[in-house]
Design a protein around this nucleic acid. Structure first.
Lengths: 339, 339
DNA sequence: CTGAAAGCGCTAACAC
DNA sequence: GTGTTAGCGCTTTCAG
């Protein structure tokens, strides 16, 4: 691989001149510029960005840590991140934490060693060790889809997330408006604010409608298909089963759809199901899934925006972006039977 | 950030000694070793892997280029890659080509500039410009889920893919065994061998069963939900619609399931549907999807294995791993009506 | 068992 | 408008 020196020699100029024509950081006579360009082409020169980064203390690489990049929701967020990074001229080093705090810290350690310019923490776990760790290394962080937990409120970290509580409320109110009175809820892991907040919204909607919250109607899952399936079957076996279900993410909602079908019941005739996220597949379930849509891609994009701004101004106060959720009516919810 | 020099000073030894205790590359007296360790802890020293890589000409970073990391199949492959890389101590820089050759080349350029040790090309496009490009830069490549196209056969590149042709055959034979005679096919983009090979298998199975291939029964999609939905509706509107469908990937199969339902027909009573891939959601569709399973995670793992071996021996002959596919019977296929 | 010195490839003062 | 020089932080001969 040719270096700048090689190019300089071939063009009969100094290395610094070559560097300057590459980075357009100095006026160079048209003549030498041309000679340098020719030399670069002749040698098929490509700058070594490793060396450049070592010198500049800027790698133009961001670390992205998420629980699982194959989860459709996070996959969309990642898509947004990657696209935005590409536009800004950044690269993404991807890490799956797999809900394992050890692994998360291991990743952070090498990411920082590799001198990433910043880290995007996508709703990974409910553990805030990562934040402590990052604080000691004073690396810029943006938290996506989650805020720092108790004891970290004043950590001055940029965040971007959606209005989960409002989403839970919208979903539940919608079901109520359709006449349902026994509305079940399949929640995610309670340690995740993204899940807990949705349940808060659910409770609030019931309360404001004057309906007592029946704790037996709230079953918790783990945001995976199977748990949605199980929780749904459990709810349907209740002596007085719910006629509508607010499921805290689409993955579990798909499981619930499957469960209802296998029990011989029909969605939405016998039981209405509403999900959360609006993953791409939600438009093609049978029946098509009504859900609370989150702007997943935008979440990723905004995270990158925040990071890029942070990188150019470390001192400004932390920003907190809250993106809106919207109710997306499709075919999985209907009026309460007999109404 | 403290450097090795700082640690050396604090410990009262030379930088080289510090380097050697870090990398355990030389015998050091227990006493000095301890002093160095203490100094590192005291200063909270973390090695700068950028500098290390510049020196060692090894970044322990792989570039991964795929069409779209949010596609459930590629997402699984990526999961396998990431997990294997983690185990080997590598990192992944992710790039989505978005079916855009320009973008793919742009990515390759910066990846190589950033001195990735190798590139994993996951079935990205049908363009082989990327291979030309990589050849000129003499970077190790592993092609995943696809082999080099015409004119590149002798390029000596490691590859790992599944037996798509056999998969198409297995699927079609299965449908035939259930008594179906009019078997439709929804293919992917014909320029992708992964799709084309499956169709070849389909044709072969029909032919060996003595059934004439009816070209009207083959509709091509783009591997996305919507195209499966459309293609399915188109097939069902035929004067003599097929009673079974071989859909070349699960995403489109899900679209097909949705279409059959919306037309008022039933799967599998009226029409059988078999997919390809076995994405996680396939177990939770209504009805659960029968499909040809590919070991997506393994595809990723094996790709990394190949790359790691290649990195330690550039000269050995190219290897080609072919992973098996299997028929996964679930609930979306049934015997032909009236049998 | 330890240290000194050179250099990976690049950029940015600082000269002229 | 151009060249010289030092150095980013690390590793690795080479010397002792």
């Amino acid at each position: 691989m040719p270096t700048i020196r090689d190019v300089a020699e071939a063009a009969g100029v100094s290395p610094s001149t070559v560097s300057h024509v590459i980075n357009q950081t100095r006026h160079v006579s048209e003549d030498t510029r041309q000679r340098v360009m020719d030399a670069m082409a002749a040698l098929d020169y490509h700058p070594n960005r490793l060396a450049r980064s070592l010198r500049n203390r800027r790698t133009h690489t961001l670390g992205v840590l998420l629980p699982n990049s194959a989860n459709p929701f996070f996959a969309q967020v990642l898509l947004g991140i990657e696209a935005a990074c590409f536009d800004y001229g950044y690269n993404v080093i991807l890490g799956n934490a797999n809900d394992d705090p050890e692994r998360e810290l291991a990743y952070l350690d090498v990411l920082l060693s590799k001198q990433v310019d910043g880290v995007l923490l996508v709703s990974t776990g409910a553990y805030d060790e990562a934040l402590d760790f990052l604080a000691t290394r004073s690396a810029p962080v943006v938290m996506v889809d989650r805020s720092p937990g108790a004891g970290y409120e004043d950590l001055q970290i940029d965040t971007v997330f959606t209005d989960n509580e409002r989403g839970g409320m919208l979903a539940t109110r919608y079901l109520l408006r359709l006449g349902h009175r026994r509305v079940g809820c399949i929640s995610g892991p309670s340690r995740l604010t993204s899940s807990a907040d949705r349940v808060v919204g659910y409770r609030q909607a019931l309360t404001e409608a004057g309906i007592r919250v029946d704790e037996d109607l709230i079953v918790s899952g783990d945001f995976q298909h199977e748990s949605g399936y199980r929780a749904c079957r459990q709810l349907l076996e209740l002596p007085e089963p719910p006629t509508a279900l607010f499921v805290c993410n689409d993955l579990m909602a798909v499981g619930a759809l499957c469960a209802v079908h296998e029990v011989g019941l029909n969605v939405p005739a016998d039981v209405s199901v509403i999900g959360f996220d609006d993953i791409p597949l939600a438009s093609y379930t049978v029946p098509r899934l009504t859900t609370i849509a989150q702007p997943a891609r935008d979440l990723g994009r905004v995270a990158v925006d925040l990071m890029v701004q942070r990188l150019s101004d470390r001192e400004s106060p932390a920003r907190h972006e809250r993106l809106p959720v919207t109710l997306l009516e499709r075919d999985s919810c209907g009026p309460m039977r007999g109404e």
